[in-house]
Amino acid sequence: MTTFEKVRDITVEQLSVDADEVKMESTFIDDLGADSLDIVELIMAFEEEFNVEIPDEVAEKIRTVKDAVELLDKEK
């Protein structure tokens, strides 16, 4: 599975959205309807799936699916 596919599946599970709604350019808050606590839960799920630690100041910069994919690819 690619990083995007993993991020997509986690996003679908956490935000209860359809898989085809999750595109690279989608923003978690505006396009996918996440609120601040959803973002925290998403970050936690990414941390567990990819076995990485994402500090708050980095997490705050994640706006789009692409931001998450690029960060997680870098951390790998």
Partner: peptide, 10 residues
């Protein structure tokens, strides 16, 4: 809030 939320959930 977000740190406490993470801790609490886990």
């Amino acid at each position: 809030g977000s740190e406490v939320f993470k801790f609490a959930v886990k």
